[in-house]
Each structure stands twice: as C-alpha cells, then as structure tokens.
C-alpha cells in the first residue's frame, strides 16, 4: 500500500499521457484532458501544503524559542494577515461575489504596500552583487575565461554609445565587427549553439529520468519509510 499504490498510479498516469501524444483518439485524448485538469486542481493543494509547512516550521520555532524565533512571529503574523484579507474578501466591493483583489480590497492594499516592494527589492539587490562579482571575479585567467569575458563585454557594450563609437568607423567589409552587429552575431550563433547543446543534453536527461519514474526504477520521491 505504501509503495506499490503510488508506483502503479505513476505508471498508469505517465503511460496514458505518453499514449495520448501518439494515439490522439478515445479514450486517451479524454483522459489526457481530465488528468490535466486534475493536475491543475491538485496544484492548489500544493500551495496549501506549502503554507501549512511554513506554519509548522515557524510555530515550532516560536514554541521552542529557537534562534531568531521573534522573526518567526513576523512571518506567522504576515501570513495570517494576508490570508485573512484574501479568504474573507475584506473590503471587496461587491462582497463575496466581488473580485477578491479589486480596488479597495485589503488584499490589494497589502499586495501593493508589502508584497510588491519586498519582492521587487529582494531581486534588485542582485544588481549590486553582480557588479561586485564583475570587479572581483571576472578575470581573464585562461583562454576560456578570456572568451567568456570578451563575449560578455560585447553584450554589455551593445546598448551604450561607447559600443557604437568604438567601432562605427570600421570599413564596410569589416562592419561585421561593429559592436552592435557582433553582439547580434554572438547571440544568434555561438550563444545559440552552446545553449542548443545544453538543451539537447538536458532533454536527454529529462526523457531518461521520466522513463525511470514511469517504470518505477527511480523511486527516491517515495522516501525510505515502508521500504521492503
């Protein structure tokens, strides 16, 4: 029950979806469509599970007075405030039937005042670290590192006036070395070739991993409990 049932479910669902691609007829097309909708609905429970897990971790941290437990109070309070605002549709014009994040709703207000700036700023911090990395770690130590550096250099210069004025004077036969042209070439030729090779490699990995999962060879997602 603990291991066989999930393996059988994985096998049936995986096989039906592969079959639906090659046999686009009843019953496979119908099952493909229904399984997809089921998957979408189960995804919502994954959000709930995520929230539940977050609460479990932070409440236990508060209960046991572990390191930084006071900040866990902030997390839990923020969680309940946002959840209450959204699920109870606080301030929504039109009441229960209104849009849950319409103008005037507490959810929208909290989104604009807290979620939006926090997420945006959190990501913008990376600009500083990437600049610092450029200065400290981006060195032409080897031939390979020099190629990497030169490619990045051309890409970075492309939108700048310097990128234009450095090479605009080149004669026509050498215009392919003009930085905007060179940048386009780097993106659509060596970059594309490199990314394509990586893409093919990843695709082969995913295809083989999918087969291993469907056939029950790969079982790590089941954990170790109840192992025969």
């Amino acid at each position: 029950m603990k291991r066989t049932v999930p393996l059988v479910i994985t096998f049936i669902v995986g096989l039906v979806l592969i079959a639906a691609m090659f046999i686009p007829h009843w019953p496979f097309t119908g099952l493909d469509s229904k399984f997809s909708i089921f998957y979408d609905v189960i995804a919502v429970f994954a959000f709930i599970l995520g929230g539940g897990n977050l609460l479990k971790v932070h409440l236990s941290r508060i209960q046991n007075r572990r390191r930084d437990w006071k900040y866990s109070i902030v997390t839990v309070s923020g969680f309940f405030l946002m959840l209450g605002a959204g699920l109870l549709k606080i301030g929504v014009p039109g009441g229960w039937t209104g849009d849950y994040q319409a103008d005037g709703s507490l959810l929208k207000y909290l989104y604009d005042a807290t979620f939006q700036p926090l997420q945006a700023t959190m990501f913008s911090l990376l600009a500083f670290f990437v600049a610092s990395a450029s200065y400290r770690a981006f060195r032409a130590k080897t031939k390979e590192a020099t190629i990497l550096l030169l490619a990045a250099f051309v890409i970075l210069l492309r939108p700048t006036p310097l990128g234009y004025y450095l090479t605009f004077w080149l004669p026509k036969p050498l215009q392919f070395l003009h930085i905007p042209n060179l940048s386009t070439w780097i993106m659509s030729v060596p970059n594309m070739a490199g990314q394509r090779a990586i893409m093919i490699g990843i695709a082969l990995g995913i295809v083989s991993a999918s087969l291993r999962l469907i056939l029950g060879i790969e079982r790590s997602y089941l954990g170790t409990e109840g192992k025969d």
């Binding site: 400290r136 981006f138 990045a152 250099f153 970075l156 310097l162």
Partner: peptide, 12 residues
C-alpha cells in the same frame, strides 16, 4: 553597463 565595463577592465 559602462560602470560595470569599467569595473571589469579595472579588475583585470
């Protein structure tokens, strides 16, 4: 971009 390019040159 220009500042970062300058950083890379200086760093090297």
């Amino acid at each position: 971009h220009l500042v970062i390019v300058a950083f890379i040159i200086l760093g090297n």
